[in-house]
Amino acid sequence: MTAPLETPDGRYIVVRGRLWRRSDPSLSDDRRAELVHDLMEARRAKKTALGDDDPAAVEQAHARVDAAKTALGERGPVWWSDDAPDETRRMAENTRYADWFASVGKP
């Protein structure tokens, strides 16, 4: 599997032309691993709850996913300090990364 394209400033990866915020690089490797583990457990719990048709468990698992992604820095307040806006979920060609994205070729 090929690693996703990463913006030059390291803030986003590009998946099918869309920007997704990367984890906060200031997190220690141990803390990042712990949070990723929590995220994967929460995603598995959500899948199980969906299969069991248990709306309460789905909601609880969804909240755990959100908490892990927020702690990773992928959601919530941005982890950079230069006041640049968060462009998560936007198409790269419609952002300040448009020229860079055009120059690297659309994967």
Rank of each mutant, 00 (worst) to 15 (best):
D66T: 13
D99I: 15
W100F: 06
M91N: 05
R75C: 13
A98G: 05
D38S: 14
A56K: 04
S23F: 14
R96M: 07
V65C: 10
T88G: 04
W80D: 09
H62F: 04
A98Y: 01
R32Y: 03
S28R: 14
G51D: 12
R96W: 05
R96A: 06
Y12G: 07
W79F: 14
G10Y: 14
Y12R: 07
R96H: 04
A67S: 13
P77M: 00
M91H: 03
P107K: 03
D52E: 03
L27C: 00
H37S: 03
W20I: 09
L5N: 08
L35G: 01
P25L: 15
T88S: 05
P107G: 11
P55V: 00
K46M: 13
G105C: 15
D86Q: 00
K69F: 05
K47E: 11
V58H: 00
A57G: 00
R31P: 04
T2A: 05
A42H: 09
K69R: 09
R16H: 07
D83H: 08
D82T: 06
R64T: 01
T95I: 14
L35I: 12
L19E: 05
M40G: 02
A71L: 13
V65Y: 01
V36A: 14
A71K: 09
T88L: 00
G17S: 04
G17K: 06
D82Q: 01
V104W: 03
N94I: 01
I13Y: 01
R31K: 14
W20L: 08
R89Y: 03
V58N: 02
T2M: 08
G17D: 01
S103H: 01
W20N: 00
D86T: 09
R32M: 06
W20E: 09
A56Y: 10
A57P: 07
R32H: 08
A98M: 03
A67D: 10
T88Y: 10
E87V: 15
L35V: 08
F101L: 13
P8I: 13
K69E: 07
K46Y: 01
G17L: 05
D54N: 09
R89E: 07
R31I: 11
P85W: 04
D82H: 02
E59D: 01
Y97K: 03
V78M: 14
V15S: 05
E87R: 00
R21W: 05
P55C: 03
H37G: 04
R31A: 12
P85S: 12
R44H: 06
K46D: 03
A42Q: 02
L50I: 12
A33F: 05
W79L: 14
L5K: 09
D99Q: 15
D24N: 15
A63I: 11
F101G: 06
P4K: 11
G73P: 07
R11H: 12
R44G: 00
L39K: 10
R21H: 08
K46E: 10
Y12S: 02
A61G: 11
Q60W: 10
W79C: 11
T7F: 04
L35K: 06
A102H: 07
A71Q: 13
M1T: 00
S103E: 00
N94K: 10
A3D: 02
D24M: 15
M40I: 12
G17M: 07
R89A: 09
A63E: 12
R21F: 10
R64S: 11
K47H: 15
D82C: 00
R44Y: 11
A45P: 02
E59M: 05
M40Q: 12
L39W: 03
P8Y: 12
L27G: 08
R44I: 07
